[in-house]
Amino acid sequence: MQDIELELNGQRVRLAVSRREHLADALRQRCGLTGTHLGCEHGVCGACTVRVDGAAVRGCLMLAVQADGARVRTIEGEGDDPVMRALQDAFVERNALQCGYCTPGFLLTAAELIALDPDPSRESIRAYLSGNLCRCTGYQAIVDAVELAARRLREAPSTDGRAR
């Protein structure tokens, strides 16, 4: 076991982790943050997406010991973020989820896209989300929802970002 210290969703935490444990397992099993889902555990599906030092990464492709000293944010830490709020509302409205297993990963990836490009085309939404797999929706509704959230955020930048 090895001790690591990180900033997790804005809080400093100290954890003892196994050296061979990946970050997503540590978040789920040691921190109880089960919003980070494990699908394939080899980097294909994107269900385990978390943000490390500001960038979306695969939680299963980083060892927990590598997060020592890092800033990590999971879906649980994004609840007050106006972009995330707008995305979640749009996902519900457009039925962009069914079982919901892939949803945290899609939301985090889509939030990163909107931060980079507030007015993404459908094509660029598809390209940016291409590393996240959904087995229920067929993607059309997810692209719709991201497009809708981005539009609302552009139209109401001065409010708290809540979709109206």
Partner: peptide, 26 residues
């Protein structure tokens, strides 16, 4: 050697490789 880990960690997870030592150069 563990650099970005985007190929090595999947190989570790799948046990395609089982090194005695993982050397993290990050």
């Amino acid at each position: 050697v563990l650099a970005g880990g985007q190929s090595l960690v999947p190989m570790l997870n799948l046990r395609l490789v089982q090194p005695a030592v993982v050397l993290d150069i990050n």
